[in-house]
Design a protein around this nucleic acid. Structure first.
Length: 106
DNA sequence: AACATGACATAAG
DNA sequence: CCTTATGCCATGT
């Protein structure tokens, strides 16, 4: 059933990000099915309503930097939230080597 | 229905 | 390191 749109798949992936971990847009896109959906991932997150259980604050750019347009969105304290989860920031960047989420194969 | 915009990533110069 | 170009999908006008 392809009734699921890219958004749905993307939301599924994001919802699976464990606490204390971060994932890049490209990674989510790849896990969702296509690595070129990175842009769609961003748009999907932008379309996420405030009451959504999606940990949108755990989504960062591949550089480990918080997206620029986050201030006007849902979680304007993304960095703070991540810090609260135990993620360390260096000069505003996250150490992706340490904190990038690796999807476990169940 | 067509065009433009947007929370990105990658390749090329 | 920076800029430009391309890919992808949904939304708004």
């Amino acid at each position: 059933m392809e009734g699921r749109t890219s958004f749905e798949r993307i939301y599924e992936v994001i919802a699976q990000i464990p606490r204390g971990r971060v994932a890049s847009y490209g990674q989510i896109a790849e896990l969702a099915g296509n690595r070129r959906w990175a842009r769609v991932v961003g748009y999907a997150l932008h379309a996420v309503p405030q009451g959504s259980p999606l940990p949108c604050h755990r989504v960062v750019t591949k550089e480990g930097r918080v997206s620029a347009a986050f201030g006007s969105g849902v979680c304007n304290r993304q960095t703070e939230l991540l810090k609260a989860e135990g993620i360390e920031f260096t000069d505003g960047y996250v150490d992706m080597k340490k904190y990038q989420w690796k999807r476990r194969v169940f």
